[in-house]
């Protein structure tokens, strides 16, 4: 249920944006969810809807769009590029759970499949990100 905390951060950001830019009606919120964090999208969507109610934020049902962003990791040592879901280097269940809470924990449990270095960059698909908020003024 850690998805609730992230959903609340998204809604808080939308509310702040409304206030900052005098938005009358929010028409679109594009949310990207990085594959590395393994968010349960159904729980996340459910949490978003409930947090919106708690914050008295009314949006059209199709205004919030959630897209899963493919994860890309790149080794800082040898330059190898790979993905979290590559079966050969996917961590075990407990390790994946730790990465779910803090994606940077990937550096603890994942190694470059080419040179075994823990020194890699999370290029894309880390966690929850708001790509765009659009509205009518």
């Amino acid at each position: 249920m850690h998805e609730w905390a992230l959903a609340e951060s998204v809604i808080t950001a939308v509310v702040d944006e409304i206030r900052l830019n005098n938005i009358r009606k929010v028409t679109k919120v594009d949310v990207k969810v990085g594959e590395l964090q393994q968010i349960d999208i159904e729980i996340f969507r459910f949490a978003l809807e409930n947090v919106m109610k708690a914050y008295e934020l009314v949006l059209d049902s199709d205004a919030v769009r959630i897209e899963i962003e493919k994860n890309i990791l790149r080794c800082e040592v040898c330059g190898k590029t790979w993905s979290f879901d590559d079966a050969s280097c996917r961590p075990g269940e407990d390790e994946a759970e730790a990465i779910h809470f803090i994606p940077e924990i990937a550096h603890v449990y994942i190694r470059c499949p080419e040179c075994s270095s823990p020194d890699f960059e999370i290029v894309k698909g880390r966690g929850v990100w708001i790509e765009a908020i659009e509205g009518e003024h």
Partner: peptide, 10 residues
């Protein structure tokens, strides 16, 4: 936009 930055104060 990083939404997490908006919830830390709360």
């Amino acid at each position: 936009m990083d939404p997490r930055l908006h919830i830390i104060d709360k």
